[in-house]
Amino acid sequence: MGIQEQYRSEAAALLSSGEVKLVIGFGEGSTADRRRPLFARTPEEAQKFVLDAACIANLSTYLVTEGLLSDGKKVAVFLKPDGIRSVNILISEAQLKPDQVVILGYAIDKAEITALEGRNISDFSLGEEIRSHTPPPHILQEAERIEEMNPAERFEFWKAHFSKCIKCYACRQVCPMCYCRRCIVDVNQPQWVSTSSHTLGNFEWNIVRAFHLAGRCAACGACDRACPVNIPLRLVNYRMGKEVIDAFDYCAGENSSQKPVLASFKQDDPETFIL
């Protein structure tokens, strides 16, 4: 029995026994190589689940939907390791209760897809794996190329990218960490970020989002894929993740009991830049 059939029947069993009220997984997409989220509330609907190497989206973003878990019932969700990492971060930020999420874990290695052991978040230990995790080679090379530039070149690089931004906020919508009910960009008294899509406002928006994701990003790359104008958002998120590892020895999402990095401190944190 393939993993798809295994998870279909497991999802159906979870729903028919009433253990979970909803299973979030993947269904057929608009084209053969795309998958779209499928929300199954009955065992029959669970038979429509698809699980293959095209299932790359991070479905944990649906877990923070307002009101979804407020009735105390459980939800099952199909997650790759980066999705599990997101769940760890969300739990550490008190956005989820660990026992409300049933994880149907899978990993994709090239075209191979394997099931992950464990159903509860505490069954998964990501520690070493994510700390040594490196982004895809092209991201890494690009990040190194930017590090070697001088500030003016870097500024031009990002200006060229950010000037394309149309402020559709797809990066925000797709991100499991962007759960604020009122995003800073929607605040208008004072108006921190200008909402029209001129380059300055785009710059501010992207800087603010990157800052808010610092030490929280699960590196799932969803923002990067969602961006309609192909801004390499992963680059800046990768750089921020590296910074918190280097400066504070903190890797987001290693486990669900860590304290958020910018909500904690050590007395001997580095401060080389302060006069």
């Binding site: 030490g215 800046v236 580095p270």
Partner: peptide, 22 residues
């Protein structure tokens, strides 16, 4: 100020990466 220091460390790295001179 300890919280602020962490925040600045990260923010400063971000500004440097986006090309705003330190």
């Amino acid at each position: 100020n300890y919280h602020a220091r962490r925040r600045w460390t990260v923010f400063r790295a971000l500004l440097a990466f986006t090309g705003i001179p330190e």
